[in-house]
């Protein structure tokens, strides 16, 4: 018994070291430096709650929180619904199914740099393909990412994030759908369920755990949005307008461009609290619609 325990410690040691060094230590250390003034070079100086107060008093922080909330509220439902619908369609007996799956998954493996360039061009106010299409239909062009209306900009970026992420979510839900027993579907068909009823009364309830997982992961990725903003705006130094900021951009700017680790850590912790509350909120409603049996 003792010998077994001995080997257990040995084999888990690398993972324990990994957790301590790369998870626990950063958590504890970032908490500590959020109460200090630290420029990465000189020793941290304890300043109490100053960073927290300063961050919470900054207009740009609240703007970034507003943006990321709206971003999540637009992105998560659209991504989840689209992923579900596409997965359902690709789960049917259709031709070139593999090709369609590849088509929807392609954006997932496309680097943000390349995707950003393409979307920037598509969103171009005067010369972009989207406005060209609108104008062809007699509609006015839209300032998708240059608009003074922050909601328009955040919505446009959320759509790009859906383009990038829907493939991954679709694969997860598709995996869930493929686990739905054929017998169940056949039985429902015999009982007179049409396609819509099968989808809503049989398939959906059985894949709700996957849908729930997709929602949780999408929510976290929405609150951690960073690449999509940099991909579309270029870089922080080129001047992303304050009204379009999200918390992770502020964290990156403060930590690595301005060497203000204290405010960066405080912002990161505040973001963590928000994600936690949002996830707990989703968890609270989990039992009402997610079926694990």
């Amino acid at each position: 018994m003792q010998k077994q325990g001995y080997w257990g410690y040995i084999f888990t040691l690398p993972f324990v070291v990994n957790v301590v060094v790369f998870l626990l230590f950063p958590i504890v250390f970032s908490t500590y430096i959020s109460f200090t003034e630290w420029d990465l070079f000189n020793a941290p100086r304890w300043i109490g709650l100053d960073n927290w107060v300063r961050v919470l008093n900054k207009h740009e922080f609240w703007v970034s929180i507003r943006n990321v909330f709206v971003f999540a509220l637009i992105f998560v439902p659209i991504q989840t619904i689209m992923a579900f619908v596409i997965a359902f369609m690709l789960n049917q007996a259709i031709r070139a199914k593999g090709l369609f799956r590849l088509f929807y998954f392609l954006p997932v493996v496309t680097p943000w740099i390349a995707g950003g360039v393409v979307w920037v061009w598509m969103f171009n106010y005067q010369y972009g393909v989207i406005n060209w299409a609108l104008e062809s239909m007699g509609l006015d062009p839209v300032k998708w990412i240059d608009s003074s209306n922050w909601l328009m900009v955040i919505s446009s970026i959320a759509i790009v994030q859906v383009w990038k992420g829907v493939g991954q979510s679709m694969i997860m839900i598709l995996a869930g759908m493929q686990n739905v027993p054929k017998e169940v579907l056949e039985a429902s068909q015999i009982d007179g369920a049409n396609g819509w009823k099968q989808l809503t009364k049989v398939v959906f309830p059985m894949v709700t755990p996957m849908v729930y997982l997709v929602m949780i992961l999408s929510t976290i990725s929405a609150f951690q949005a960073f690449d999509v903003f940099l991909g579309l705006f270029g870089s922080i130094t080129t001047g992303i307008p304050e009204r379009n900021m999200v918390p992770n951009l502020l964290v990156y700017r403060d930590a690595f461009l301005l060497f203000k680790m204290g405010p960066a850590s405080a912002t990161a912790w505040l973001l963590f609290v928000i994600i936690l509350v949002f996830t707990l909120f989703q968890k609270y409603f989990e039992k009402k619609w997610v079926h694990y049996d």
Binding site: T237, P241, L257
Partner: peptide
């Protein structure tokens, strides 16, 4: 400079695209 330059650029961009 690194800090105030970003702030200036944010607003200059807005001015030049006609938002401000």
């Amino acid at each position: 400079w690194s800090e105030w330059r970003i702030l200036v650029q944010q607003v200059v961009n807005e001015i030049m695209v006609g938002n401000v």
